[in-house]
C-alpha cells in the first residue's frame, strides 16, 4: 500500500532521512519508533507531500505520491496531528466534518453534522461537545476530536502523529484502544509515529525503528522483544547505555 524507497531529506547540513526504505502492506498497522529528532515526523510528512523529499521514491497503491490528482490522493488519507491541529475558529462539529462541508466530498450541512456527531460518539464524546469550540476542551478531548476528524471521511489510510503525547496514562490507554478498534473496524492502513512503548504494543501489527535516518529494524510487533538488535533493545527498555547516544 505504502512503499518508501531510498528516501532522503536534509535541512541545511542536517541529513534527517538518509535512504529510508519502508513498506506498509494494505490494512496493516505500522508503528514507527525512534528517539526525538530522528525524522519520524519528516518521514510521515513526506508521504503526504507536506515535505518534499530530496530524492527517493514514495509509492501509494503503486502510484508515485507526487504525481496525479492531488485532491484524489489526499482524499485517501486521514491524519491525527500531535497537538490535534483543530481549527480554533470553528466549532467541534465543523472541525470533524471539515472535509464533508467543502470540496469533492461535500454533503448537505445537516448530513455532515449528523456524520460528525456519529464520529464524535464513536470516539466516546457526547453530542453536546459538537457545538463547543476546541479551546473549551481538555487535551484528551481535543485528541479524540482530532481522531474523529481523521476518520470522518472514512479514509483508506490513517496517520497518527504521536497520538498519546501529553496525555495521562489512562487517557493514553483510551486513545490507543480507540485507534486499534477503529483501524480494525475500518480495515484501514495505519502509520503511527510514537516513542510511547505502550502505544506500540497496543496499536502495531508491525514496528519499524528509525535511527540515523534509516530503518534500523523492522518486523512484527511480536518479534520486537526478541529481535536481538542492540538499538531496538536499548530503545524499548529505555536504557541510557547502548549504541544510541543518550545526549544527541
Amino acid at each position: 500500500m505504502i512503499r518508501m524507497q531510498n528516501v532522503q531529506k536534509a535541512f541545511g547540513d542536517n541529513r534527517v532521512l538518509r535512504g529510508l526504505d519502508l513498506h506498509i502492506p494494505k490494512a496493516t498497522s505500522m508503528v514507527i519508533i525512534g528517539g526525538s529528532g530522528t525524522g519520524k515526523s519528516v518521514a510521515l510528512k513526506t508521504v503526504l507531500g507536506l515535505i518534499t523529499p530530496d530524492s527517493g521514491t514514495i509509492l501509494v497503491d503503486g502510484k508515485p505520491a507526487d504525481k496525479g490528482d492531488r485532491d484524489a490522493f489526499l482524499a485517501k488519507f486521514g491524519m491525527l496531528f500531535q497537538g490535534g491541529a483543530l481549527f480554533d475558529s470553528l466549532p467541534v462539529w465543523q472541525n470533524v466534518a471539515f472535509r464533508l462541508l467543502r470540496g469533492t466530498l461535500k454533503r448537505p450541512v445537516e448530513e455532515a453534522r449528523e456524520i460528525a456527531i456519529e464520529k464524535l460518539r464513536r470516539v466516546g464524546l457526547k453530542s453536546e461537545v459538537a457545538d463547543r469550540f476546541p479551546a473549551e476542551l481538555s487535551g484528551g478531548m481535543q485528541k479524540r476530536v482530532g481522531l474523529a476528524r481523521a476518520i470522518a471521511a472514512e479514509p483508506e489510510i490513517i496517520f497518527f502523529d504521536e497520538p498519546t503525547t501529553g496525555l495521562d496514562p489512562i487517557m493514553s490507554g483510551v486513545i490507543n484502544d480507540l485507534i486499534r478498534e477503529i483501524v480494525v473496524e475500518m480495515g484501514a492502513t495505519a502509520m503511527t509515529i510514537t516513542h510511547d512503548m505502550s502505544s506500540v504494543r497496543a496499536i502495531a501489527d508491525n514496528v519499524a525503528m528509525l535511527h540515523d535516518g534509516v530503518i534500523q529494524w523492522t518486523g512484527p510487533v511480536a518479534d520486537m522483544d526478541a529481535s536481538g538488535d542492540p538499538y531496538l533493545d536499548q530503545f524499548i527498555h529505555g536504557r541510557a547505555e547502548g549504541p544510541i547516544e543518550a545526549v544527541r
Binding site: L50, D71, L74, F81, Q82, F87, F98, G103
Partner: peptide, 12 residues
C-alpha cells in the same frame, strides 16, 4: 500549531 498542515491533509 500544524493547522495549515491539517488544512492540506483535508484537501484544502
Amino acid at each position: 500549531t500544524e493547522q495549515i498542515d491539517a488544512l492540506v491533509t483535508l484537501s484544502t
